[in-house]
Design a protein around this nucleic acid. Structure first.
Lengths: 211, 211
DNA sequence: TGTACATCAGTGAACGCGCGTTCACTGATGTAC
DNA sequence: TGTACATCAGTGAACGCGCGTTCACTGATGTAC
């Protein structure tokens, strides 16, 4: 994934890789501190203590760097898929649901600035971001919808709902609920209470069992 | 809400109001066509066939206009609250759920560019947008959580989940699922199928009944 | 182990564009009599 | 009903800033012998 050639055709060695990473880190930092609307290449290079010309050796523009960050965030999410591979039936289901939810929420909290921007760009029609998002979400959608389909085959879940739409609804809940966390804080709802509730809902949707 | 005084202290008459509306419409149009990242005051005035100086008579800057649009969108959402005032118990519940879901989704589709941006700004810490969003969401949260609390009082819903977190989860689902609609299209999931599924899930969460 | 050369990596400094913003002005509309 | 004046509304044109982007250059590192 990491390109081996700079934008001007130079071959990138180990030293250059470090600089590139520094630029990416600076981008991520500014993104979460100041938001997407005033991200500037010049600020990134200031933050990374380098020069604008250097930035353009590694990225064609700011959105190129963001795309890379979004890609990395997507990769980082894959590890939690193990929780979807297991069966959530029976008493152990709750533990899996909680583990999955906890990790998903933590992942979104950690990468919130980038994931938010990725989604915004995707929704505004940027093809590169849309593809990236599609690929990042696909394994989750698959894991969730196969659980629903299994439940439908067993008759535990109503057969006339769309497994794909249901999986999307769960993803929507997970992705978006992180935005409510600061509000939860203000209202005195504890994070673990929120995780607990969310896990319950997801488990209920996926297995048809109340919890 | 609509201010009666221009930024330079002039009193705004009926003619000026029309110009102001034209500027707002132009802002909304550009926002949904080109996205938030390259919205420019100069483009807004070009679109509205007026001059930059005129824009600054009515708004202090672009985000001032967006704030106003977001406010209007919030007002526009209030009408669907009637569906939450009714009881969703019994066989009629499904109809109310579908009506509510349908209107909510339609509302988000209509104002997606602005609501998306409002939420982004709110999450990135802009106080004005956060307040606006808080106020817009509040009646929905209240309507949903009181349904949940009623269900908990009846014993139909587990008592150890947070009604607030559950309400937020439903809002999250509703708000975010609109982003999946284009993907649904591509996969051949019909919009009404999605509404149906979403209504089922919400009804199940709110009443504890499978549907 | 040292020297010469090739290649990798970084950047100073400048250019130019386009946007945000404002001011001083013109034009349009309303109102008093 | 017309005229004079006050007020509302709109804008041309300019300023200046700051950002994106590039080029030609210097400096650092690696490698051959």
């Amino acid at each position: 994934m990491t390109r081996v050639i700079a934008t001007d055709g130079r071959i990138i060695g180990s030293r250059a890789k470090i600089t590139r990473v520094r630029l990416l880190e600076a981008t991520a930092k500014l993104l979460s501190e100041n938001g997407a609307l005033d991200l500037k290449v010049i600020d990134i290079t200031r933050e990374a203590a380098t020069s604008p010309a250097t930035f353009y050796q590694y990225f064609t523009d700011a959105s190129d760097a963001i795309l890379e960050l979004a890609h990395q965030a997507g990769q980082d999410a894959l590890s939690m898929l193990v929780h979807l591979d297991k069966s959530w039936d029976g008493p152990a289901g709750k533990q899996h649901a909680i583990a999955f939810t906890t990790e998903f929420v933590a992942h979104w909290q950690e990468h919130s600035a980038i994931l938010r921007l990725r989604n915004l760009q995707a929704e505004e029609g940027d093809v590169a971001f849309r593809d990236l998002r599609g690929k990042a979400i696909q394994p989750f959608m698959k894991g969730l919808s196969s659980k629903i389909e299994a439940g439908q085959a067993d008759g535990r879940i109503s057969a006339h709902i769309s497994s794909y739409a249901t999986a999307a609804a769960i993803m929507a809940m997970l992705e978006r609920l992180v935005a409510y966390l600061p509000e939860f804080n203000r209202r005195g709802v504890q994070p673990n209470e929120m995780i607990e509730t969310l896990s319950c809902l997801i488990l209920q949707i996926l297995t048809g069992e109340k919890c």
